[in-house]
Simulated assay, not measured.
Amino acid sequence: MKLLNDMALFVEVVKAKGFRHAAEAVGIPNSTVSRRISALEKAIGLRLLHRTTRRIELTEAGQIYFERCKRIVDEAKLAHEQLGELLAQPSGVLRASLPVDFANIYLAPLIAEFARLYPGISFDLDLTPRVVDLVAEPFDVAIRMGHPPSSNLIARQLANLACRLYASPRYLEQFGEPSHPCDLAKHECIGFRSGKANVWLLHKGDEALEITVGGRFQLNSVGLIRRLASLDQGIAVLPAEIVAEDVAHGRLQRILPDWEGPATPVYAMTETRLLPAKTQRFIEFLRERLSGHAFA
């Protein structure tokens, strides 16, 4: 890279017909230009310029070297411009693994917006519940909810989703609304089948409680938990983004508003830090759109 920069400086000196004008053009001191050209001559073992007190002239070797340098520098500039255009409008197939419920309920409109912004990108999206192998399978990125397991993969946190307590108005009318987390023990609580599904960790500021709950439903689908809660089957702890539409239409309402469950982090997982433009833009887009959901 240093050699290419010195070649570009040599071309600038020849075009400007002197060190001073070249220095003004590139914004570095005149003495630095002179020193770098001298170092270039020493490095390649050729005298490139005849220097006088009033002007410079190319030597025969300098003329040949100038023509070659100009071609190389022009090609480098063109490649840089083409790369910039490629990064501005990336293309190709984006292969992504997404959480089923989060993708259907929340990510779908964001993906549609991203598709409108980048018409050159097409999509191959995997929404199966299995955890894909980013090393062995041809996926560019996997979006995951929850803390990622320890691995050699690169995890970029996109958001931390606040989890709150919800129930349907009809359920609350029938069974009453709890006024304190301890009251949850008397209610149907729809548990997420992970770890201790019958123990809910709730916090209010610095105060934290472990509440043992019970209920007929334990499952591993956020979407189905949301649906069952809206069908009057009990109380659920869910990310606010997942239930926003149900709350807006009155199918669910927040209860115990001072209390929250543990926040759910959202990560973009990749095999490497060196990402193609399509993947980089997708991750940046999701991070920007989810930026209002504060990190822990």
Rank of each mutant, 00 (worst) to 15 (best):
51 R>L: 08
51 R>W: 05
125 L>F: 14
206 D>W: 08
117 L>F: 07
144 R>K: 12
246 D>P: 04
9 L>P: 01
209 L>S: 08
181 P>G: 01
227 R>M: 13
4 L>V: 06
206 D>C: 10
80 H>G: 09
166 Y>D: 04
277 A>W: 04
141 V>E: 06
204 K>P: 00
195 G>W: 02
84 G>L: 10
153 L>Y: 12
40 L>N: 00
141 V>H: 03
13 V>D: 03
26 V>W: 00
58 L>H: 02
114 F>K: 02
110 L>I: 05
155 A>W: 05
233 Q>D: 11
265 P>K: 00
10 F>L: 03
87 L>W: 14
148 P>D: 06
222 V>Q: 14
86 L>K: 11
264 T>H: 07
206 D>V: 13
47 R>A: 15
261 G>A: 12
150 S>W: 09
281 R>K: 15
134 L>K: 01
294 A>H: 08
275 L>P: 05
226 R>A: 13
39 A>V: 15
188 E>S: 15
228 L>M: 14
98 L>P: 05
59 T>W: 02
83 L>N: 10
63 Q>E: 14
278 K>P: 07
189 C>E: 01
60 E>Y: 10
18 G>P: 06
161 L>C: 06
265 P>C: 00
220 N>A: 13
254 R>S: 13
82 Q>R: 09
71 R>I: 10
113 E>C: 04
126 D>P: 01
275 L>N: 07
70 K>R: 14
100 V>K: 11
238 L>P: 00
45 G>C: 07
275 L>I: 06
198 N>K: 09
63 Q>W: 11
86 L>Q: 11
141 V>F: 03
273 R>T: 13
218 Q>V: 15
152 N>M: 15
45 G>V: 06
104 N>W: 10
65 Y>A: 15
170 R>A: 15
253 Q>A: 09
129 P>Q: 07
270 T>I: 05
160 N>M: 12
185 A>G: 09
237 V>D: 06
30 N>Y: 10
175 F>V: 14
8 A>Q: 00
7 M>Q: 13
201 L>M: 11
